[in-house]
Computed example of a mutant assay.
Amino acid sequence: MLQEVMQVLPKSIEEAASRYIHSSANYLEEIRIRVDRQIEFIVNNRPYFHPYIATKEDALFILNKLSHFSIYMIEEELKKGYVTIEGGHRVGLAGKVITENGRVKVIRDVTSFNIRIAKQKIGIANKLIPFLHERKWMNTVLIGPPQTGKTTMVRDLARIMSLGVAEQRIQPVKVGIVDERSEIAGSVKGVPQHTFGTRLDVLDSCPKAEGMMMMIRSMSPDIIVVDEVGRQEDCDAVLEAVNAGVHVVMTVHGYDIEDLKKRPTIRELLNLEVFQRFIVLSNQNGPGTIKTIYNEAHKRIYTQQAVEGDVI
């Protein structure tokens, strides 16, 4: 269980982490390792601290494991501040940043690691199908603050779209994932670590705006899936994709559709009525709770019921 994570941990931390990893694998979200401080485990969005104090030797061990004992192998990842390992788990890095001409050249003297546990929850998006598919898949925005299950949800939507739903006579379509931070597909050396259908292609570690245009030109997708859209160039690329006849499913940070209206770049897409569905997520009953669903007119077509278990 989570063997890929265990393999990058030194024995001292592996022993400390063992009971959290094996007893809380379904709920463990992050392992945070900081030199000269206690190990932190995030379980069900709550922090738990283990008394073991991480050392510089522990940090060096983890870096060697991540780089296969050749730091030059992860030079590009060090510029971005994270490394994706097998299983799709992402290891965030912090330490001394070296810049060149105002841009990040590398992170050196890494003293903090954030191991984010990748979870694929097959079927988590099934409840969304009746809202998102009417003869064809709709342009959709998933809205939520951090750790509300946006990426997990959009990952499962990509799987469903690329597989089709035989019992509902929904045919599989060509899906292109532009995975700038390697979080949706969790690719390692270009190979997705999560389960998808056969009609799916991934551009890994590619900037969103450029990647969407590359995907349209080279892979002719029916749907593009992209995570955490917000910059002007990203929104311009979304509009270009929609104008080219490609459907878009994307995630954005926010608490509700009103948040999106306050952001100039996203507001333009709203004014142009690019999207037909807006899914607002929360972690009220755990990550993946459907809070509200809006239609293209920004009218509620679903609101979370005041009952336990309204989680997908």
Rank of each mutant, 00 (worst) to 15 (best):
R267H: 13
A241S: 14
I301H: 01
I170P: 01
Y48E: 13
Q3C: 08
E296S: 15
H133F: 15
P10W: 08
V175T: 08
A59V: 06
Q305K: 07
E15Q: 12
S23R: 14
R181L: 08
D256A: 06
K56C: 08
A59N: 01
I266K: 14
A17C: 01
E258V: 10
T289I: 01
G149N: 05
I266Q: 15
K150Q: 03
D310E: 14
K299W: 11
E86I: 07
V141A: 10
V173Y: 05
T99F: 08
R181Q: 11
G197R: 08
D36F: 12
G211D: 01
L163T: 14
L239C: 09
G176D: 13
L200V: 04
R37V: 03
L239F: 01
F113M: 13
I160V: 05
L200S: 09
D259K: 01
G123S: 04
W137E: 06
R108Y: 11
G254W: 10
I39R: 05
Y82E: 15
D310R: 09
T303A: 09
D179Q: 06
S220L: 07
G123Y: 04
S24P: 02
Y52K: 03
R46M: 11
E75L: 11
T251L: 03
P10T: 11
N45T: 00
R108S: 07
P130I: 02
P287Q: 14
E40G: 10
